[in-house]
């Protein structure tokens, strides 16, 4: 793995809960689908080590931001489907606001101008 990708993973790690909540806003789903969506939506150098997603989901569930339900489809391995709660939506709004403030501050210091496209 390249150094650039590893740095991307470091940046991604602290913000994974917000990404998970954002994905769950579209509807309940399981961990594999969440990981896939993060890796497909976020272009390189963001690449989630998928095993680290489950501790994040565990924390979000414990804090009441998501709610998980085990499903046992016939002939298939059980999977846990997560859905966002009202508390989770409020948390997502808070994290989104914080991220915007953070990104604006960093961009200002670095002199980065975002492309309108």
């Amino acid at each position: 793995m390249s150094e650039q990708t590893e740095n991307g993973s470091d940046l991604l790690r602290g913000n994974t809960p917000a990404l998970v909540l954002a994905i769950l806003q579209d509807g309940p789903t399981h961990g594999y689908a969440i990981a896939k969506q993060i890796n497909e939506s976020a272009k390189s150098p963001l690449h989630l080590k998928q095993g680290t997603l489950y501790p994040v989901l565990h924390g979000l569930e414990r804090d009441g931001f998501v709610i998980g339900q085990w499903e046992h489809p016939d002939g298939e391995r059980p999977r846990k489907v997560y859905g966002i709660t009202d508390k989770g939506r409020a948390e997502l709004a808070r994290r989104t606001f914080e991220w915007k403030q953070f990104a604006t501050s960093i961009n200002t210091i670095l002199g980065v101008t975002l492309d309108a496209h």
Partner: peptide, 18 residues
């Protein structure tokens, strides 16, 4: 999936956090 110890340590940290 990533390194086993990375995921395990993340889970351990998460477990201890609360």
């Amino acid at each position: 999936f990533g390194p086993a110890d990375l995921a395990a340590m993340a889970m351990l940290d998460e477990w201890c956090r609360g």
